[in-house]
């Protein structure tokens, strides 16, 4: 489904991704792990088409289609979904209005009739329950005054509503307590489907106890340095990134400061 070949990307002239190769098939769940500053979030942003990043080399295709030729919104309509690490607020725009606009943009793209406010309300209420969000959230401004956990649940709720082909989850577990982690994981597991792929980006292994991946990749210095199955994550937890000869940027910074 998703094919990344020799991908190089930079921001403000600084190269972050230095030749990524990755193949993801429909139905699979992949986890990308790595220390801070390894390029995990950059990879998510680049896949979703954030124009702040410049692609200097390589290719990305989704079901054979060249993603790099598509605008952000076109990629979204083709089925790329990014659950943000830090979802931004849009004051005054109700979550309901935002979500319906998004769902209708997708439906319009597929040639389906737009959903009216009543139909959408019904659907949104059902889905909000799946991630344990009070339907009253729908009336609040997008991410306005949401707690960290609420924001993350809101992101997963959007994935459930939009039913993407490829869901990219950027540090979805960060800032979650155990209960919220369980809810979010249940939501992600509900997304698992034969015709859908999931790419999880995470610093910690604990998320993978809840959402068990088929493949695990370790990203360091802008390259995938090791790939394996579920067991790779466990090994990392036990032995740390140092085992692979990788230094966490924070650690490195702390060490150099000493």
């Amino acid at each position: 489904m998703l094919s990344i070949k020799n991908l190089h990307a930079s921001v403000e002239g600084k190269e972050i991704l230095k030749g990524i190769n990755l193949e993801i098939k429909a139905g699979e769940v992949h986890a990308i792990m790595g220390p801070n500053g390894s390029g995990k979030s950059t990879l998510s942003q680049v896949l979703a088409g954030n124009e702040a990043f410049e692609i200097t080399e390589g290719e990305i295709t989704l079901n054979g289609e060249n993603l790099l030729e598509l605008e952000t919104e076109e990629r979204a309509r083709e089925g790329i979904f990014l659950a943000f690490q830090y979802p931004v607020e849009i004051p005054g725009v109700s979550n309901l209005q935002f979500l319906r606009t998004a769902v209708n943009a997708m439906r319009h793209h597929k040639g389906e009739a737009e959903m009216n406010a009543a139909e959408f309300m019904k659907l949104a209420k059902e889905v909000s329950k799946q991630v344990d969000l009070d339907p009253a959230f729908l009336k609040r401004g997008v991410n306005e005054g949401f707690s960290g956990g609420e924001k993350k649940r809101n992101e997963i709720m959007q994935a459930l509503l939009l039913q993407p082909k490829l869901a990219i989850l950027d540090e979805t577990d960060s800032g979650l307590d155990i209960d919220a982690l369980q809810v979010v994981s249940n939501g992600v597991n509900a997304l698992r489907a034969e015709d859908r792929a999931i790419l999880m980006v995470t610093h910690y292994q604990r998320l993978l106890n809840h959402i068990v991946p088929d493949h695990v990749h370790v990203l360091a210095g802008g390259k995938i340095v090791k790939s394996g199955g579920r067991e790779l994550a466990l090994e990392l937890e036990e032995r740390g990134y140092g085992w692979l000869g990788i230094k966490d940027e924070e650690e490195a910074a702390a060490n150099s400061a000493n």
Partner: peptide, 25 residues
């Protein structure tokens, strides 16, 4: 840019996104 990126990532046209953000304001 973050607000625009969020809207566009959800499939919303940039014009519609700006207009939605301004209307919300």
């Amino acid at each position: 840019d973050e607000q625009m990126f969020l809207c566009r990532q959800r499939g919303i046209d940039p014009e519609q996104a700006v207009s939605m953000i301004v209307n919300g304001f």
